[in-house]
Design a protein around this nucleic acid. Structure first.
Lengths: 208, 208
DNA sequence: ATCTTTATCCCGTAAAAAGGGTATTTTAAT
DNA sequence: ATTAAAATACCCTTTTTACGGGATAAAGAT
């Protein structure tokens, strides 16, 4: 049985790296690659890979969204997430989006092959460095409401409660309450730490 | 003339990608790779590449430091920085550290070859997406003193002035002064915004 | 229909930060 | 040797946050 694989990553070097590593395997067939989510979906109309290696950071869309989309339209297709070490917090989200495995870009050939093999057998493959994270439920996901997220970014912008209140047509005491809830949920002692944790847990994104 | 090149990157896939892309070029010879700064310096004792492709994010040391070290011990060796798009703020630092060029990991074969060629001719090569940044001097670099950096991370940890003072054996008014200078230098209206900008300008790192 | 969450608002006190100064000692640079 | 920059420390005032409590209406979920 020959597995057909497809790669989604905006880093050309990574695409070529995986391809180079796997080209000697005659149980695997390279189907092509895409550098963003839109191009990926377009390619999948004609190409039908058994497995997709997918970066979680894409220029047009997050890996989660693309993964969900793929799984919805092509439920049989397996998806393995791909990322760098400092984005570990995305693992859980990726798995929740339906991914079948997760490896780091520092993975060697052996690990990639193992991951593909396990995933094609219907199992879940997680990188050793990453799987430990899932065993620590103490840092459980922080769920913010729409309003709280909105206020969080304004706090990060340096606005005071009353400025935020004006901006959102609220009473400043309302903003104060939301701020309290944010501190509580995020587990920070003050706004500075809150912003730091927000970045670490990807509640705030660097490139926005 | 055959150029010997060396790769420093902790992402195995990137190393293999570059290698695969360049192996058909008989004007280039692959000398090996290292996954961190220490291993790189060790390898350079025996191997003498003409050019090093170097990731700016290494597990043990930042690319700047490694670049400086390399340039100090082996002044003739050319260095091309390598990074992803969202780390553009590092470009200037990398060049100041003596790098001869800078490309993104999304670069294709043509661009890598062009970069190597130009750099070996003694010129500086900058990726088109990146070079624009250097023409915007309006967001000039923020230079913090050692003490200020130290206090910045403690503020991000959520400590108050007096807690920081205790930790560093200072008066709390001293910490207050440093905090004022930080706000001024970083250009923030309060601590929350300061931490946000600090992350955006890489004064604070996510994975520490 | 009932319960829960979300979003809204208010009061009060205490703690901390923001902002305005000034000033001395140490260190680094020229 | 002189100068400049960094690190240290203090005072004052105002603003903002932090933290305690309680309360109500609307929207969603079960």
């Amino acid at each position: 049985m020959k597995y057909r694989y497809f790669i989604v990553d905006d880093h050309f070097m990574v695409v070529e790296g995986i391809r180079a590593l796997l080209q000697s395997e005659n149980s695997l067939e390279f189907m092509g690659s895409a550098r963003n989510a839109a191009f990926c979906m377009a390619e999948l109309l004609s190409k039908r890979p058994d497995i997709i290696l997918m970066d979680i950071n894409l220029p047009d869309k997050s890996g989660f969204e693309l993964c969900k989309e793929v799984k919805l339209k092509y439920p049989g297709t397996k998806v393995i997430g791909l990322s760098t070490f400092n984005q570990q917090s995305f693992v859980k989200k990726m798995l929740e989006s339906g991914a079948d495995g997760y490896i780091l870009k520092s993975a060697d050939k052996k690990e990639i092959l193992k991951a593909i093999e396990m995933v094609m057998r219907g199992q879940i493959y997680l990188d050793a460095d990453v799987s430990g994270l899932l065993r620590h439920p103490e840092d459980r996901e922080i769920i913010l409401t729409k309003r709280e997220k909105e206020i969080l970014v304004l706090i990060a912008e340096g606005l005071t409660n009353s400025e935020i209140a004006d901006r959102l047509f609220l009473g400043s005491s309302t903003v104060d309450t939301h701020r309290k809830h944010l501190l509580l949920k995020i587990g920070a002692r003050n706004s500075a730490e809150m912003i730091k944790i927000a970045f670490q847990k990807n509640l705030l994104l660097l490139d926005s």
